[in-house]
Amino acid sequence: MAGRTAALAVVALGVMGLGAVARWRWPDAAPALDCPPEAVRLDSEGVATCGEGVAPTGAQALALGHRLDLNVATEKELALLSGVGPSLARRLVEARDAAGGFSTWEQVDAVAGVGAAKLKTLQAATVLGSSPDAGGVW
């Protein structure tokens, strides 16, 4: 019994050691680019750079942490947001079109399927009006 406990202790110490090495070698949280998110562009090969290139759109922009303009986003783009999905995205677009656009978060909250948690998610991932992150939808 003591031999088995000792073996388990050695395995546990080994796993903790591997975790410490992985944490030490893991990339830090510092940005990879030396420009603000709204200045990130994609070069001709699709690599993110600062300066010249095209503004990222759709899933690329979402992956870069850009915020979506809720008043011009497509149903497909809204469905990319965590917890939204295709049916809520469709209801958001229908409500937006019927109202001529969202001007308040209360209007967004009134859409069927948007509760307190979804509203917080939408507020974190979207803006009402032109996004400060990039031109167009993103």
Rank of each mutant, 00 (worst) to 15 (best):
C50P: 02
V40A: 10
S82G: 01
V54L: 13
G65N: 02
L92M: 10
L92P: 03
R91A: 15
Q60F: 01
E106G: 03
E52C: 01
G115E: 05
W105L: 04
K76N: 06
A73V: 01
V93C: 03
L88P: 01
A110Y: 13
E106N: 05
G115S: 09
L78G: 01
V47Y: 03
D43K: 02
H66C: 13
S103L: 12
E38A: 13
A89T: 09
D69N: 15
V47C: 02
S103H: 14
A55K: 06
Q107V: 11
D43A: 00
A99K: 08
V108S: 03
E106S: 08
G51R: 07
Q60E: 15
D109H: 14
R91Q: 15
D109L: 15
L81H: 02
R41W: 10
V84P: 01
Q107Y: 13
G113T: 14
L88F: 10
Q107H: 10
D109T: 07
L62E: 15
S82K: 03
A98G: 11
V47F: 06
G46H: 01
L78W: 00
A95T: 07
G113K: 12
G53T: 09
P56F: 11
V111M: 12
D109K: 15
P56H: 12
Q107M: 14
A98I: 12
R67C: 12
G85Y: 08
E38Q: 14
L64H: 04
G58F: 12
E52T: 13
T49N: 09
T57L: 12
V84K: 04
R90A: 10
V114N: 03
V40R: 11
H66G: 14
L92Y: 05
D97Q: 12
A89D: 05
V93A: 06
A79P: 00
L81N: 03
S103K: 11
R91P: 04
A110E: 15
A55E: 14
A55M: 07
A61R: 03
D97P: 00
S103E: 15
V111L: 13
A89L: 09
Q60I: 06
A55R: 11
H66D: 14
R90Y: 06
R90I: 00
A79D: 03
L81R: 01
H66L: 15
G100K: 11
V111R: 11
V108E: 05
P86K: 15
A48E: 09
G100F: 14
C50Q: 00
A59R: 15
G85V: 13
E106I: 02
A89W: 09
R41D: 11
G113L: 14
W105Y: 02
L92I: 06
A63H: 07
A95H: 09
E94C: 01
A110G: 10
T74F: 09
L88M: 06
T74K: 11
C50T: 05
E94R: 12
S82E: 10
G65A: 04
A99S: 14
G53E: 04
L64M: 14
G85D: 10
N71G: 02
G46W: 00
E75P: 02
